[in-house]
Design a protein around this nucleic acid. Structure first.
Lengths: 155, 155
DNA sequence: AAGATTTGTTAATCTACATTAAGAATTTTG
DNA sequence: CAAAATTCTTAATGTAGATTAACAAATCTT
């Protein structure tokens, strides 16, 4: 369990790598993302201060997700193999986060998914490019742009 | 931790209920599903023999998911509050399942999501109505019907 | 077995979002 | 600061999947 400091843009975990790391974000912002067969990135999750980020906790399986820093960040790095550090409480919390993400993805319209995102990450809108938010929502940046225009009109 | 036996159709957990239950499926088939504001059901997960099914493990929060039996089933019912029974190993496994579900939902086409479903639950296709599979995939039964027709044509 | 109900198919039409493209705004870099 | 690169917006057109509807097939009920 040691503290590390990373610059924006640094890749902390590559897809396919056999990783045994879990990161606790002390400050800054990370993201995990899935790269599909066509090379397209789909943002799986953002991790601002206080969040955990990791692949699925199996050290003997190749990672599905890639993780990098969207801002200069300070992290606590823990080895997954030290099961003792993975307390049940934190795992349960993570399950809740994933469950909400699934319910969010299942909710019909992109506009609603955007609202859901705003609730989950109230302070991230200003910090990352819209195209990343679009990727998280599963839509194109153009579509997000249109959604935002409509939201403005309604006000 | 006690064994219970339920008939097809029995609802084991209602949306909004404060539940502290986790079910291990010994035989049969359960499903968890999310009910949206318009009353539409979205199947979150199927749980055949060997799987766990539960809401997000917080006994002090109302359930987001409803759980019922799709077949006569035999279950082990565990109280979530007895943290000791929720071993880290099982939680980690559950996280992996949820992560795969998210990646599946993010993968572009409905046809691919169907393939993904067939891999995850090879023996469920014959056991549940197509409209439930469609719900799990996030599409209409009509759309699934069309996907299956195209798959047949290609063979 | 006959009727009733639920489920599955097909086809026509509609719509949310994708794609393409071109220009405007913002950020990065030398 | 100016030039280059990236990001954002808008609009035109295309498409996967939704909706509607009518019928066929399977399942449940008595």
């Amino acid at each position: 369990m040691k503290q590390i400091s990373v610059k924006k843009g640094v890749i902390l975990q590559y897809k396919g790598e056999f990783s045994d790391k879990v990161f606790f974000v002390e400050s800054g912002l990370l993201r995990s993302y899935y790269i599909d067969e066509r090379g397209k990135e789909h943002i799986f999750m953002f991790a601002p201060k206080g969040w955990i980020i990791a692949d699925s906790f199996y050290p003997d399986q190749p990672c599905q997700l890639q993780i990098d820093a969207l801002e200069d960040s300070i992290l606590l790095k823990v080895k997954k193999t030290s099961t003792s550090d993975l307390d049940v409480h934190r795992l349960v919390k993570r399950i809740a986060v994933l469950q909400n993400r699934i319910i969010m993805l299942m909710s019909d319209s992109a506009a609603k998914r955007y609202d859901h995102f705003l609730e989950t990450y109230p302070d991230i809108v200003q910090r990352v490019p819209q195209k990343m938010i679009a990727s998280y929502l599963g839509i194109t940046p153009e579509a997000l742009s249109t959604i935002k225009r409509y939201k403005k009109l309604k006000r």
